[in-house]
């Protein structure tokens, strides 16, 4: 599936929930299933700043595709990271860099997008794109 298709899939999943509680229960579940970052990467170097809870993010390149792993001490934050991982992981750096992320808007998690919001969702997206950027440069060399 393309990044766009995955986003559409998530949007349709979320549209099934009319209650905010179901939405957050789903996020919490997502949080519990996040692809776990290897403990060796759970260091300050991998910490994303600008979050009220701590978020660690790592990425590997396998067969020209990026795979993210993460962790956070807050489960909702972990759920949000995992949503992003679901969208981005398994795609080429190029695809990640070009993708527009607009599904968050449409699933009613927009409040997490504001730059001042303490979970720093924007910082997560930025960091993921940064990984893609670095991999892209490496591949071109």
């Amino acid at each position: 599936m393309t990044i766009k298709e995955i986003q559409e899939e998530i949007i349709s999943e979320f549209s099934a929930y009319d209650d905010w509680m179901d939405k957050y229960n789903y996020l919490i579940e997502m949080g519990r299933d996040v692809p776990q970052i290897d403990v060796q990467y759970k260091t300050n170097n991998h910490l994303i700043t600008g979050c009220q809870s701590r978020v660690w993010l790592h990425a590997d390149l396998k067969e020209n595709k990026v795979f993210f792993t993460a962790d956070s001490d807050a489960v909702i934050t972990k759920g949000i990271v995992n949503l992003l991982i679901r969208v981005y992981s398994g795609h080429t750096p190029e695809e990640i860099l070009e993708a527009d992320i607009d599904f968050l808007d449409q699933i009613g998690l927009k409040e997490h997008l504001s730059p001042t919001r303490s979970n720093g969702l924007l910082s997560m997206v930025k960091q993921m794109k940064l990984y893609a950027q670095v991999f892209k440069l490496k591949m071109n060399n």
């Binding site: 905010w20 957050y24 009220q52 809870s53 807050a74 489960v75 909702i76 934050t77 303490s118 979970n119």
Partner: peptide, 21 residues
């Protein structure tokens, strides 16, 4: 076992304004 941020986020959705952090 629960991060304050998670509590703050959920109770906010239920109308309770408090501070976490």
């Amino acid at each position: 076992g629960i991060h304050p941020y998670d509590i703050g986020t959920l109770v906010d959705k239920m109308g309770i304004a408090l501070r976490t952090g």
